[in-house]
């Protein structure tokens, strides 16, 4: 089922037509690739290693806390087995009960929809799965940073709390908040030697704590941008109503690859859209040309968006 919208079929049809025009007219008169303003705050939860709060248009609000724990590698008699994909745990909680709340969890994930699920078994619509996938894809640079010393590593808990389940399309909101929280994560400095497998010791001076993502090193934490297409037009940062009217949608996950703002693609996923109520258009999937346009638009714009968010994080972190 498409994400629930309060729009009636005639309204959807009107929206579809205006978005398919050349040039298109968006309901809030933005240009095709224009993002809406956001309020971003970081490092405000005292009990977390890193945290962020993002507010977006359409009353979207999300809080992320990153906590790190010291963990020993699982050692058996003959071999040390390091299951590195278990070093990061992502959970997405939807305020208001998630699956039982308004919207029944449908469309909360947004990505490849919670639609199709037979039961209401998942409030986050699989958001935790793709957030983690984006983090681990692309060489898994983050996992190398979690190694403390021989036999010890950090276990990272990324807890996402989505305060407004159905308002803002979550991919951008959740990934921006996770990006900022990881960017502001600091771990205590190791003071025992690296190559000893004793229990590691850490400095209790937070002034010399080390950032998880060293500034001006690459790649940076990933970020997912939703992109939709109506007719021949491609739109970034779509609103809920635009997603309901869209024919096809993608979520492109990117990470900053160098200081000039070039990005690497680390993931592309289909996004569930409303298909204009099901009547409009003849398109049933994405043609190769359209795919190139949609991903190309994300690649062009992502550099500025991620860099802007990173800049804001840095200003807040080093303001004091």
């Amino acid at each position: 089922m498409p994400p629930p919208t309060p729009l009636s079929p005639p309204e959807l049809s009107y929206l579809y037509t205006s978005l398919a025009l050349s040039p298109p007219i968006r309901p809030d008169l933005r240009t095709s690739f224009q993002f809406r303003p956001i309020v971003a705050e970081c490092s405000f939860l005292p009990h977390c290693n890193g945290s962020s709060r993002i507010c977006m248009a359409e009353a979207g609000e999300c809080i992320v806390g990153v906590k790190a724990e010291v963990e020993k590698d699982a050692t058996s008699k003959y071999a040390t087995v390091i299951e590195r994909d278990k070093w990061i745990e992502v959970s997405v909680e939807v305020a208001g009960g998630g699956a039982s709340g308004p919207g029944s969890g449908v469309g909360v994930g947004g990505i490849s929809g919670a639609g199709g699920a037979a039961g209401k078994d998942e409030g986050d619509g699989g958001a935790a799965v793709w957030l983690k996938e984006g983090l681990l894809a692309g060489g898994a640079g983050i996992l190398d940073r979690l190694v403390i010393s021989k036999g010890w590593h950090w276990k990272l808990y990324i807890d996402v709390l989505l305060l407004t389940p159905t308002s803002h399309p979550p991919p951008l909101l959740l990934s921006a908040a996770t990006n900022m929280a990881l960017d502001s994560t600091f771990l205590p400095k190791l003071i025992s030697p690296h190559d000893v497998d004793d229990i590691p010791a850490f400095s209790d001076d937070w002034g010399i704590s080390v950032p998880l993502y060293e500034p001006s090193t690459f790649p940076r934490p990933p970020m997912s941008l939703p992109v939709i297409a109506v007719g021949d037009n491609v739109f970034l940062d779509p609103s809920v109503a635009e997603i309901a009217a869209a024919e096809v949608g993608l979520v492109v996950t990117l990470t900053l690859a160098d200081a000039e703002g070039h990005c690497d693609i680390v993931g592309v996923r289909g996004m569930e859209v409303g298909r204009g109520g099901g009547k409009e258009g003849e398109r049933k999937g994405i043609s190769r040309k359209l795919l190139r346009q949609m991903v190309g638009a994300c690649v062009r714009e992502a550099g500025d968006v991620i860099k802007g968010l990173g800049e804001s994080t840095r200003q807040q972190m080093f303001r004091a």
Binding site: G138, A257, H262, G270, G285, V295, V299
Partner: peptide
């Protein structure tokens, strides 16, 4: 991907991994 050959359309796409964008979307294409 899920591909509809008669319509030349992709209905589901999932890319995971690392693709450079030095040449635009050429790597992905």
């Amino acid at each position: 991907l899920g591909y509809m050959a008669a319509r030349d359309e992709i209905s589901e796409l999932w890319i995971s991994g690392k693709l450079s964008t030095k040449g635009g979307t050429a790597d992905m294409d």
